[in-house]
């Protein structure tokens, strides 16, 4: 174990997988000598050269389409799309091509590609560089969707994504890039896709959260613990496939659920998690209506105070937890 940042953990995951498997390569805008817009791929071109760390033109559609084509013919490409917002330019390649090739060809193709992108607000980059669009991808059968919330998870999940034989959308959280945590350095440390984790055990209320909101939720949970309220924090880590069991079991235990994410509320993934709970036996254990704390249904604004107001704050998370406890 070594302390490192979320960004370093992602870098290490790519480095290890590229050392292990010559078919793994990285392509994207400015991923070479620049090291990626957020510095995630720093040093990779020095180790692996231009052939395997490929700077591309600003052409999201073809970078993503080419990843699908390379994947279906035997490579394991990692694509970096600089901002998650720019996946809009790659939608045909991802949604109509990569996600569907296996099914529509009768199971005779596999598309082992990983699309990394940076999601979320909080950097003052405004409406076109700050979105959390993960729910879109969850709605497409054939794609897997991962949103790591800690450096350790980022490393273990990215290695699993690269080794997976399906297209995986790996949503990195910009504001977590510099967050530090202990990360296993073993080459075989993998976190399987579809396995959630209880980030903090508790018995009074379940909070399901992922990505950028996770540290915020954990901070509130620790505070409430000191006040005598026992909060269980469940991180699904992968949204597709979703570890339904871990969520359902936690809600059965606590009888109360608060769901927290950064993305817009309407049509967001929290609605899916809420449905998983109420469609399961956990419904019978619910002592209060489920509380959803999500981003406001607005584009991300520029002014820092406005920007902050869009996503759930610690105060709002605290209030949401108290509300579900009728306190």
């Amino acid at each position: 174990m070594r302390e490192m940042t979320y960004k370093e953990a992602i870098n290490l995951a790519m480095r290890e997988e590229m050392r292990r498997d010559p078919d793994v390569f990285l392509m994207g805008e400015d991923v070479g000598i620049y090291g990626g817009a957020f510095g995630v791929s720093v040093g990779l071109i020095e180790e692996f050269g231009e052939e395997r760390v490929r700077d591309t033109p600003i052409s999201e559609a073809i970078i993503t389409g080419a990843a699908a084509g390379a994947a279906v013919t035997g490579m394991r490409p990692i694509v970096e799309i600089m901002f998650m917002d720019f996946t809009t330019l790659a939608m045909d390649a991802l949604v109509n091509q990569a996600a569907k090739m296996r099914y529509m060809f009768g199971g005779k193709a596999k598309v082992p590609m990983t699309l990394r992108c940076a999601g979320g607000s909080g950097t003052g980059a405004a409406a076109q560089h700050s979105q959390s669009l993960e729910a879109w991808f969850c709605h497409i059968p054939g794609l897997k969707v991962v949103v790591p919330g800690t450096p350790k998870d980022a490393k273990g999940l990215l290695k699993a994504a690269i080794r997976d034989d399906n297209p995986v959308v790996f949503v990195e959280q910009k504001t977590l890039y510099k967050e530090k945590g202990m990360v296993p350095e073993e080459d075989d440390f993998i976190i399987p896709l579809g396995v959630g984790e209880i980030k903090k055990e508790g018995k009074d209320v379940t909070v399901v959260s992922y990505g950028r909101m996770l540290p915020r939720v954990l901070k509130v949970a620790e505070e409430l613990e000191r006040e005598g309220i026992s909060v269980e924090v469940v991180d699904p880590r992968t949204l597709v496939p979703l570890d339904k069991e871990i969520i359902i079991n936690s809600v059965i235990k606590t009888g109360r659920a608060v769901l927290v994410n950064e993305a817009c509320k309407t049509g967001g993934y929290l609605g899916e998690i809420a449905s998983v709970i109420v469609e399961s036996e956990a419904f019978d254990y619910l002592d209060a209506p489920i509380v959803r704390l999500a981003g406001l249904d607005v584009p991300i604004p520029y002014n820092p105070e406005l920007e902050k107001a869009v996503v759930p704050s610690e105060e709002q998370i605290r209030a949401g937890i108290l509300k579900v406890l009728n306190r």
Binding site: I62, A68, G69, T73, D92, A93, Q97, K108
Partner: peptide, 28 residues
């Protein structure tokens, strides 16, 4: 499609095969 013999598939999207062809060429 018959991926095993190098037929990477017909495409319902006009222009949808361009990226796949480029990626396949990159592999080669």
């Amino acid at each position: 499609a018959d991926v095993e013999v190098g037929n990477l598939g017909a495409n319902g999207v006009v222009g949808g095969g361009h990226g796949i062809a480029v990626g396949a060429a990159l592999t080669q």
